[in-house]
Amino acid sequence: MDEAACIFCEIAADGSAGHRVFEDATAVAFLDARPLFPGHVLVVPRRHAETLTDLSAEEVGPFFARVQRIAGAVERGMGATGSFVAANNRVSQSVPHFHVHVVPRNRKDGLRGFFWPRGRYASDEEAAEVAARVRAALTAGPGDAGPVP
Rank of each mutant, 00 (worst) to 15 (best):
M1H: 11
D2F: 05
E3K: 14
A4C: 07
A4N: 13
A4S: 15
A5C: 05
A5T: 13
A5Q: 14
I7V: 15
I7M: 09
I7A: 13
I11P: 09
I11E: 07
I11K: 05
A12F: 08
A13C: 06
G15Y: 09
S16Q: 15
A17W: 13
G18A: 14
H19T: 13
R20C: 10
R20Y: 15
R20P: 11
E23V: 12
A25S: 15
V28Q: 09
A29T: 08
F30N: 07
F30E: 09
F30C: 10
L31Y: 08
D32G: 05
D32V: 04
D32K: 09
P35K: 12
F37D: 11
F37Q: 11
P38M: 01
G39V: 10
V41S: 02
V43H: 01
V44C: 05
V44W: 00
R46T: 04
R46H: 04
H48L: 06
H48T: 10
A49S: 08
E50G: 14
E50A: 14
T51A: 06
T53W: 09
D54A: 14
L55S: 04
S56C: 05
A57Y: 03
E58P: 00
V60A: 05
V60T: 11
G61S: 04
P62F: 00
F63G: 02
F64L: 06
F64C: 01
A65V: 02
A65H: 03
R66M: 01
R66F: 01
V67W: 00
Q68Y: 00
Q68V: 00
Q68H: 03
A71F: 02
A73S: 08
A73F: 01
E75D: 04
A80L: 04
A80M: 07
A80Y: 08
A80G: 11
A80F: 05
T81L: 01
G82Q: 04
S83E: 09
F84W: 12
F84G: 10
N89E: 12
R90I: 13
V91G: 06
Q93M: 12
H97N: 10
H97K: 08
F98L: 14
F98S: 04
H99C: 07
H99E: 07
V100E: 04
V100N: 03
V102C: 03
V103Y: 10
P104R: 00
P104V: 06
R105M: 03
N106K: 08
R107V: 09
K108S: 08
D109Q: 03
D109K: 03
G110T: 00
F114A: 03
F114D: 01
F114S: 01
F115L: 03
P117L: 00
P117T: 02
R118K: 06
R118G: 08
R118I: 14
R118H: 02
R120Y: 04
Y121M: 08
Y121C: 12
A122G: 03
D124S: 11
D124C: 10
E125I: 05
E125M: 02
E125Y: 01
A127W: 07
A128D: 13
A128N: 06
V130Q: 12
A131K: 12
A131D: 13
A132N: 06
R133N: 12
R133Q: 15
R135C: 07
R135F: 10
A136S: 15
A137C: 11
L138Q: 13
T139A: 15
A140P: 10
A140Y: 09
G141K: 12
P142C: 11
P142M: 14
G143V: 09
D144P: 06
A145F: 14
A145T: 09
V148L: 13
